[in-house]
Each structure stands twice: as structure tokens, then as C-alpha cells.
Simulated scan of single mutants.
Amino acid sequence: MDATTLLLFVPACFAINMAPGPNNLLSISNATRYGFRAAWMAGAGRLIAFAGMIALASAGLAVVLHTSELLFMAIKTAGAFYLFYIAWQLWRAGPGTEGAAQAGATMSQLLRQEFLVAAGNPKAILVFTAFLPQFVDPSQPMALQFTILGGLFLLFEIAAIAVYAWMGVGMRRFLGDPRGRQLFNRSCATLLGGAGLGLLLSRRA
């Protein structure tokens, strides 16, 4: 893999990582409710999901998802309804600001939530199916190239988790009023619900 390929890959990859999406929105919401540390650590759930998707793409198994309309629909539907579930939880959440213990969320639950949101979005694995291979040279060892590109993607994703969690903490300072916090929770719920609806109505390219 030459330097020119990496120079093309890095900005495009970083833009994908930093784009607003269900997981990044979830980091903001978790940071406002539980703090930066909890939101940042919970992001490990999505990293595990993305690492698995990169491994599938490297092994060529992601082609099964790319070509199977039934499997694509099943994953898409499950992911959409899980987003609806999270949106409903946020909508019903109280305006308290005491953190995870009072809210009843454990770190394992937050990790699982991040993992399922990432794994339930077929667009994510299609990114690894359609995006990463564009930067792979078939004449060179494929596994090594996927490892390098996948490692960079995960590194940028860690940065995205930190940035969005930091944004959430910044917002929390202005959400001391219970009514403001409830409005924020319901705004996040609406956006997540909209993301779920968009996912449900989307069609595979």
C-alpha cells in the first residue's frame, strides 16, 4: 500500500467517522446523562461491532449480505426497531441528572446498546464492503491491507466517540433545568426514531 492511497483514504475515512449517525447521537445522549467517561467507554461496543464487520469484509463474507436481499431486509428491520426502542426509552426518561446509577443503566447495558445499534445497521457493513475495498491493491497481501485500513478506521472512530461525548458533556452544562433536559431527551428520541424510520424505508443500492 503506497502513501498516495493512504492520503486519499484518511480524509474520506475521517469524514465517514465524524458524520452524524445513530451511534454518534447515542454518544451525545449518553454523555449528557452519564458523563464523558461512561459514554466514551460505552463506545467500545460499537468498536467491537465494526471490528467484526471489517473481519467479515476481509474474509469476503460480507458479499453474502451485499447480495442477499432477504438477509439485508432482516438486519435492516431489526436495526430500525431497535432504534425505535431506544427512542421510546429516551422519550419516557425522566429529567433527572444524577447519572447512570439512578437512571438504572449499567456499563454492560451501555456497551450492549452501542454494539446493537452498530451491528443492526446494514449500511455500516456495506461501508466496509464497498468503501474499504476501493483502497485495496489486489496485487498485494489483502489481509495486511485490510488490517491497516481497518485499524485506521477504528482509530478515527475512537476520536469520533470522544468528540461526540465531549459535545454531550458540553451540552449537559446548559441542561441543568429539568424541563430543558426532558426537551433534549425527547429531541434525541425524535432524531433516533427518524433514523430508524429512514433505515426502515431505505433501499439497498
Rank of each mutant, 00 (worst) to 15 (best):
A57K: 04
M142K: 14
T67P: 00
L132V: 05
L132G: 01
V136A: 00
L90M: 02
A57L: 07
L65P: 03
A55G: 11
A42K: 07
M41A: 15
A78G: 12
A51C: 09
Q145P: 11
Q89L: 08
R46I: 03
P133H: 03
A51S: 13
F50P: 02
W88F: 13
P122H: 02
A124S: 14
L144I: 13
F131E: 12
A74T: 15
A119T: 09
A130S: 12
G43S: 09
A119W: 15
W40D: 02
V127K: 00
L65D: 06
A130V: 08
R46G: 02
L132Y: 00
T77P: 02
L144F: 10
Q109E: 12
F84S: 11
A103I: 11
G94C: 00
Q113K: 13
A100F: 12
N121Y: 10
F115Y: 12
P141M: 07
S68G: 01
A143Y: 06
F135I: 05
I54T: 00
F72M: 07
W88R: 13
L144D: 11
T129I: 06
A74R: 14
G96I: 12
M41G: 15
T77N: 02
A103R: 14
I125Y: 04
F131K: 07
T129A: 14
G99V: 04
G79Q: 07
F135S: 08
A93E: 13
A130E: 10
M107P: 00
I125T: 08
L126Q: 06
S108D: 09
E114L: 06
P133G: 04
V64K: 06
L71Y: 01
R46F: 04
E98D: 14
G43H: 05
A105H: 09
L116T: 09
A101P: 02
W91Q: 04
L144T: 15
S58A: 13
L70G: 03
A42D: 08
R112K: 03
M107Q: 04
I54D: 00
L132S: 00
I86P: 01
A55T: 14
P141T: 13
K123I: 05
F84E: 12
A118W: 08
F135H: 02
E69H: 09
A118H: 07
Q140L: 14
T129S: 13
L126N: 05
N121I: 07
A59L: 12
S139Y: 11
S139P: 05
K123C: 02
A57H: 05
A100D: 14
T77Y: 01
A93P: 04
I86Q: 03
Q140E: 14
F128M: 10
M142R: 15
A80N: 12
L110N: 10
A59T: 15
Y82Q: 05
G120N: 05
F131N: 11
I125W: 04
T129G: 02
F128S: 06
I54P: 00
M41E: 15
D137E: 14
P133W: 05
L144S: 14
M73P: 05
A100P: 07
W88C: 09
R46C: 02
V64F: 10
T129P: 01
G79A: 08
G96S: 15
S58W: 04
A143M: 09
Q109I: 07
L83R: 03
F135N: 06
F128L: 10
F131W: 10
T77D: 03
G99K: 05
